[in-house]
């Protein structure tokens, strides 16, 4: 059809650190086919699964307000790992979009 594709809406998801692991697997990052990290697995029993709002396929735009745009895979993974590790906050805020 000729209908315009609606712009994907970003959703803020708060994951409370209520398990020993975050429990997500991500792929992608700058200079890959998937330029922003995408969630490929959510493990049962992890904080992300317990939160109930993160989904496989979600693309992560920001972590605690830190943009992941332009960051290579390892850097994006490090930011997420540090957000989970820090004792400053009992949660992580993910800004995610459904893939378009």
């Amino acid at each position: 059809t000729g209908s315009p594709v609606p712009a994907p809406t970003a959703t803020l998801v708060r994951v409370v650190k209520n398990a020993n692991t975050l429990g997500i697997a991500i792929e992608g990052g700058a200079n890959t086919r998937q330029p922003l990290p995408r969630i490929v697995t959510i493990q049962k029993g992890g904080s992300a699964h317990n939160c109930g709002q993160l989904k496989v396929g979600h693309i992560i735009l920001e972590v605690n307000g830190i943009s992941l745009r332009g960051r290579e895979h390892k850097d994006a993974a490090r930011i997420i790992a540090e957000a989970f590790k820090t004792k400053e906050k009992d949660h992580i805020d993910f800004l995610v979009v459904e893939p378009g």
Binding site: A25, I26, G28, T32, A77, I80
Partner: peptide, 15 residues
């Protein structure tokens, strides 16, 4: 003709 993807696939990290 299909455009070729030249960017590499990403590794996967479990967090």
């Amino acid at each position: 003709r299909e455009k070729r993807l030249t960017l590499p696939p990403s590794e996967i990290t479990l967090l």
